[in-house]
């Protein structure tokens, strides 16, 4: 198999959520190799890890993000794609550790104080990872102080705040204000079902996107990291 064919196989497996040979999903690929095996094959064939990331994993997740934005796929399919991506990523982790692959940047993410929902946050995390960002996931019910502590540890990070409840949007506002007070240059992204562009502008956040791909596009443009 040619190098570009292997990379396309990786992208395809991620796009359709094929984790590995043992995974029964999707049914039409049952018994066939998945993202994990093709990633291993790519590295064994001498394809540079950075190329595997950019031309395999990122290609696949880019397609996933666009299909999700267009309502061609929904959350279960994105979760399966993320699992397939993780299967590939396991093979690439040593190259991140050695510095052979560099991430596009760091992204601190969490669901704001009082909000226990994690599905939106997780989707954004998965799609950002698949697009080459290092994600620092603070979890759910995250206080402003915890976001600020994480920023002290990772000072150049972008920060993403998620809220599913209308009631917790007030906590989002407070956290954005505290982050901006500490460093007005920090880029803050917000998202979640009740959040709107108008709300984003009102509380001084930098970007609101109704879908993860919009955030990816914004970050790629802002940080010239496409």
């Amino acid at each position: 198999m040619k190098h570009n064919e292997i990379l396309e196989k990786i992208a395809y497996c991620i796009e359709y959520g094929k984790i590995d040979r043992n995974s029964p999903f999707p049914p039409n690929l049952k018994g066939q190799d998945g993202a994990g095996e093709y990633t291993q094959m790519a590295l064994e064939k001498g394809i540079r890890a950075d190329d595997v990331l950019r031309m395999g994993l990122m290609q696949g997740m880019d397609r996933v993000g666009k299909k999700f934005r267009e309502n061609k796929i929904f959350v279960p399919q994105v979760l399966m794609s993320a699992k397939a991506m993780n299967s590939s990523m396991e093979h690439l982790m040593p190259f991140f550790t050695s510095g052979e692959i560099r991430s596009k940047g760091k992204f601190i993410i969490g669901t704001v104080l009082g909000d226990l929902h994690d599905i939106g946050k997780n989707l954004v995390s998965m799609i950002l990872k698949g697009n080459g960002w290092e994600v620092i996931d603070l979890g759910i019910d995250v206080s402003s102080e915890k976001f600020l502590d994480a920023l002290k540890e990772h000072p150049d990070s972008v920060v993403g705040l998620s809220a599913l409840l209308t009631t917790t949007m007030a906590n989002m506002k407070e956290t954005v204000e505290k982050i901006k007070d500490q460093n007005s240059e920090t880029c803050v992204a917000i998202g979640g079902a009740p959040v709107t562009r108008e709300f984003c502008d009102r509380i001084g956040a930098d970007i609101y996107s109704p879908d993860p791909q919009g955030l990816v596009d914004y970050l790629n443009q802002r940080y010239n990291a496409g």
Binding site: G17, P24, F25, V75, P76, L79, M80, K83, D118, N122
Partner: peptide, 12 residues
């Protein structure tokens, strides 16, 4: 769990 159940729909 939400993620676990949605993936179970696909896998099992």
């Amino acid at each position: 769990g939400v993620s676990e159940m949605l993936m179970m729909l696909m896998m099992d």
